[in-house]
Nucleic acid binder design. Structure first.
Length: 666
DNA sequence: GATTCTTCATAGAG
DNA sequence: CCTCTATGAAGAAT
């Protein structure tokens, strides 16, 4: 069970800032010692929790946002008083998300605390006439200043919050990408400033009350955000609640909202914006803000105010700070990536003369021990692997390409824990082998005739029509929306290979590595950062019809049954609840998958992926070389940003004790 | 409350 | 590569 530790009484008991090697949990205990009035966890919370979990057991994207979603009432000041008991001690973010789901699932909308930005009923007439006043909105959207620390998360809680965060980020990403696509479609291919999808997504989600963790100011880790998680935009950090400032480097509770009149820092971004920073990973010397001109040149002395004072106060009270690092990163959208690196203690603070000759405040931070490995260090390590593999990791590589150049990117085989070389003994299968009659359909001859490339705005592209009048991918090959099936352009199309509607047929793009682990046997990870919605690889095998599978002599568990994969694509990209006027085209569907795949002799990377009930990879059915709806390609896409060297996982859709991978590969 | 100020963004142009 | 500029949004301060 989770509990919330209020920090509001911290002014009563200042604490000397001794260097600490404690963990976050220890830190909570420290606070408990310091704060005489530690509020007990609300008993009602205990009964609340299981209910919450029940609510979330069958979450669908549709359920997340009901049609009757959230228009805020015009005048929040006159709104009825909150009906929520014990609002102070309840972890209200938990509550708010629960209410979203409850309302969406039952259609039964309750009045909830308007300050929590949960669903509030509004009559339809009001809704129709009124444009909400900005002022009213502003008030409703302000962040709380109440400091809490979330401790004692059970495994169930962690999975729950992980899922909430994952889906929130998925919505953010999809709005962001679609905003850019729409903007381009509207303007045609004309020049002009590109739409800021990152801003658009954030503001839209803000209107809908979908920003997380605004009801409390969380000290320490954010539920559902893991060390090493990667983000491409500062606004996304705001949406998740990891760092609430869209530009500023220090996030803090301001004096005006602080219970004791002192500002308290909760998170910082280390992004190289100040020349006096010194970043050694576990230890950081961080520069305060201020004193810069418009060109980011230090031109005057910094003052001990705002975030600078907040940092000093956090040090004084021994409050840990989240650290997010920003890097330039080629090959990703925006060319910048932000990595959550965990919690740091502020050990020291002093006023120093910076390189510019002007005075700056400096803060010595040390990473709290006992946390998972530094995400940014892994990123750098992976970068080094990509440029100089064997120098970086001299031993452990069993093969530098198990595909034998069949894939356009080498697939590595790594094992540094035992002598198992198993994956070497299978023939590498780049594409699924379908039975010959799969290609004998009359519909095979259909393709589009967009000689100069497919443009979906024109009605002439047959392939766009087949996909419900739109393409499945953006210009970077990112999946916009999961569908029962996707038709890419194929050999019968007149469009060039550069056509936007050809993605999975081009094969691997990221450097994958099959690796041996003590926990999960063989697994798969990537040396490259994989963006959410990106194509990863096909799940290949030799297709057997039901009859063939039946007479097949082998043990049935060694076959892959594609209809068992859980249909995660349905969670990806459905925004019909965000845009109320969103026209949902009717997508073609296909009959239930009725074939098995033999991977006993020929296989590719995919079958080494581990099973997870909260996977980061999903299956999407795709056609490109034939149109026989009985036999789609099983294409794997990233469901979230997958950091380099993090294990890929699939929901095989079976009971946890049965994993396809284990049955097949071990 | 409304307005001003600040800010370790972003995208594109030169 | 770099440097510069326009646009932008949130939150803190006033």
């Amino acid at each position: 069970m989770s509990s919330v530790v209020p920090l509001q009484d911290l002014n009563l008991c200042p604490v000397s800032s001794t260097p600490s090697t404690s963990t976050a949990a220890d830190a909570a205990t420290d606070t408990a010692l310091r704060v005489p009035k530690l509020e007990p966890v609300d008993p009602s919370f205990a009964t609340y929790l299981p209910q919450q979990q029940l609510q979330l057991q069958e979450p669908t994207q549709d359920a997340l946002f009901s049609d009757s979603t959230p228009e805020l009432p015009l005048d929040l000041q006159n709104a009825p008083p909150p009906q929520i008991p014990d609002q102070d001690s309840l972890y209200s973010e938990f509550h708010r998300v629960s209410e979203l789901f409850r309302a969406a699932l039952n259609g039964d909308i309750e009045v909830v605390d308007p300050d929590s930005r949960a669903i509030v009923p509004v009559s339809s007439e009001e809704n129709a006439i009124v444009v909400p006043r900005p002022a009213a909105r502003k008030k409703a959207f302000t962040r709380s200043g109440e400091l809490v620390r979330v401790t004692d998360m059970s495994m169930k809680d962690q999975l729950l919050f992980r899922d909430v965060v994952r889906r929130t980020r998925m919505v953010y990403d999809v709005i962001r990408i679609q905003a850019v696509v729409e903007e381009e479609r509207r303007r045609g291919e004309n020049l002009g400033r590109r739409a800021r999808g990152d801003l658009r997504a954030a503001s839209l989600m803000r209107e809908r009350g979908l920003w997380l963790n605004r009801d409390k100011r969380i000290v320490g880790s954010i539920p559902g955000v893991q060390i090493g998680d990667m983000f491409f935009f500062r606004m996304e950090l705001c949406v998740v609640g990891l760092h609430g400032q869209p530009q500023a480097g220090i996030d803090y509770v301001p004096i005006s909202q602080s219970s004791n009149g002192e500002p308290i820092a909760t998170s910082i971004i280390v992004s190289g914006g100040y020349e006096d920073d010194e970043d050694a990973g576990d230890a950081i010397v961080y520069t305060g803000h201020g004193g810069q001109d418009k060109l980011s040149r230090q031109c005057e002395h910094q003052k001990l105010e705002g975030g600078n004072l907040a940092m000093e106060r956090s040090m004084h009270y021994g409050i840990e700070v989240r650290v997010i690092r920003g890097f330039r990163y080629e090959g990703c959208i925006g060319h910048k990536v932000y990595v959550y690196d965990g919690l740091y203690k502020i050990l020291d603070c002093w006023f120093d003369v910076g390189k510019s000759g002007f005075g700056v405040y400096k803060y010595k931070l040390l990473r709290i021990e006992g946390q998972p490995e530094l995400g940014s260090a892994i990123l750098k390590f992976a970068q080094s692997l990509r440029t100089n593999l064997l120098a970086t990791r001299p031993s452990g590589y069993v093969s530098l390409d198990i595909s034998n150049k069949k894939e356009n990117v080498a697939v590595l085989l790594f094992n540094d824990i035992d002598n198992d070389h198993d994956p070497l003994y299978y023939e590498y299968l780049v594409g699924t082998v379908f039975p010959p009659h799969a290609f004998n359909q009359t519909s095979n001859g259909t393709g589009c005739d967009c000689v100069s490339g497919c443009i979906e705005s024109s009605d002439s592209c047959l392939c766009a029509m087949k996909n419900g009048g739109e393409f499945a991918y953006d210009q970077n090959g990112i999946l916009l929306k999961g569908k029962p099936v996707i038709f890419e352009c194929g050999p019968c199309c007149a469009c060039p290979p550069s056509c936007r509607n050809r993605v999975t047929q081009k094969g691997l793009r990221s450097r994958l590595e099959v690796f041996r682990s003590r926990e999960t046997g063989w697994g798969v990870r990537s040396l490259d950062l994989i963006q959410a919605g990106a194509f990863i690889c096909e799940y290949t095998g030799v297709v057997l019809t039901r009859e063939q599978a039946h007479i097949f002599t082998m043990n049935g568990d060694s076959l892959i049954y594609p209809n068992r994969f859980s249909e995660r694509w349905a969670e990806w990209g459905d925004l019909s609840q965000i845009y109320s006027d969103y026209a949902r085209p009717s997508y073609p569907s296909i009959p239930p998958l009725d074939f098995a795949m033999d991977v006993s002799r020929m296989r590719n990377v995919a079958c080494y992926m581990s099973h997870s009930s909260s996977p980061n990879v999903m299956v999407q059915c795709v056609f490109y070389d034939h149109n026989n709806v009985m036999f789609p390609h099983l294409m794997l896409f990233a469901m979230e940003n997958i950091p380099p060297l993090r294990e890929l996982s699939l929901d095989y859709g079976v009971a946890d004790e049965w994993t396809g991978k284990l049955a097949i590969c071990n």
